[in-house]
Simulated assay, not measured.
Amino acid sequence: MNLAPLLDAAPAIPLHAFAAMAAFVLGIVQFAAPKGTLPHRTVGWIWVALMAVVAASSFWIHQIRMVGPFSPIHLLSIFTLVMLPLAVWRAHTHRVADHRRIMIMTFIGALVVAGLFTLVPGRIMHQVFFGT
Rank of each mutant, 00 (worst) to 15 (best):
N2C: 03
L3H: 00
A4G: 03
A10P: 10
P11H: 00
A12W: 14
A12C: 08
L15E: 04
A20V: 03
M21S: 13
A22P: 05
V25S: 08
G27T: 06
Q30M: 06
Q30L: 09
Q30R: 08
A32T: 06
A33D: 10
P34T: 00
T37P: 00
L38W: 12
H40T: 01
V43R: 02
I46H: 06
W47K: 01
W47C: 02
W47H: 07
A49S: 14
L50Y: 14
M51T: 03
V54M: 11
V54C: 05
A55Q: 03
A55Y: 12
S58E: 08
F59D: 01
F59Y: 10
W60N: 09
W60K: 08
Q63M: 13
P69Q: 12
P69K: 13
F70I: 01
S71V: 02
S71Q: 11
P72I: 06
H74R: 08
L75N: 07
L81F: 13
M83D: 07
L84M: 09
L84Q: 03
L86W: 15
A87L: 06
A87N: 08
A87H: 01
H92C: 06
H92L: 12
T93H: 15
T93N: 09
H94R: 15
R95T: 00
R100P: 03
R101S: 10
I108G: 07
G109K: 09
V113N: 11
V113Q: 13
V113S: 11
G115S: 11
L116W: 14
F117H: 10
F117L: 13
T118V: 02
T118D: 12
L119E: 10
V120A: 11
G122M: 11
I124R: 06
Q127A: 14
F129C: 09
F129Q: 03
F130W: 08
F130R: 04
F130D: 07
